[in-house]
């Protein structure tokens, strides 16, 4: 197997792990609350589609690295996956229906679990940052969110929406 091939196989497997964890989270969610999104055959189709769109997005992101325009080269994989999925979902409602049978919150739990593990070794870095920056961080995060929300609220008001 060529190194590129091997790399893609690894991506494919990690994506498979990701959708498998989503299925697991959705199952546990159902145990806890039987009224949450049921697991049907459509759920499996939906997970398959999520896997496929993610993989297509990865390939597009790789191909775009060859484009001589910086903005396009630097555009994140996450964005390419959203665009791939959005275009496919605009083409056919079937994709929308299948993906919507995957519970939204069940997708988020595995991600944050892995995120927590991934930062484990950075907790040490926290000691090096000063408490002053921690205070600033609160205002920075709150600042961008509140300013955007105020502008959005005004905009929607003017749009009469």
């Amino acid at each position: 197997m060529s190194p590129t091939m091997r790399r893609y196989v690894r991506y494919a497997l990690v994506l498979l792990l990701s959708v498998a964890l989503i299925l697991f989270a959705q199952e546990i969610k159902l145990l806890k609350n039987p009224d949450s999104t049921p697991i049907t055959s459509m759920t499996f189709v939906g997970l398959g589609i999520l896997w496929l769109f993610s993989f297509i997005g990865v390939i597009i992101a790789d191909l775009m690295k060859l484009v001589p325009i910086k903005v396009i080269r630097d555009f994140p994989i996450l964005g390419w996956v959203s665009i791939t999925s959005l275009s496919m979902c605009l083409i056919s409602d079937f994709f929308v229906e299948a993906i919507q049978s995957v519970d939204f919150l069940a997708i988020t739990t595995p991600i944050l679990t892995v995120a927590g593990i991934s930062v484990a070794n950075r907790l040490v870095d926290l000691r090096k940052t000063s408490w002053k920056i921690a205070i600033v961080a609160v205002f920075v995060f709150a600042g961008t969110y509140v300013c955007s929300a105020v502008l959005a609220q005004l905009g929607l008001l003017f749009a009469g929406n």
Binding site: S18, L47, W51, F53, G57, V81, L86, L90, I99, V119
Partner: peptide, 27 residues
């Protein structure tokens, strides 16, 4: 831990794919 930080972005991709199906009907 290295695996988690290296592949976190890939673990997130299905979520990004899910968002396509949220935007499409309301485009």
């Amino acid at each position: 831990v290295d695996f988690a930080s290296k592949y976190l972005i890939f673990i997130m991709l299905p979520l990004m794919a899910r968002y396509g199906s949220d935007v499409a009907p309301q485009i």
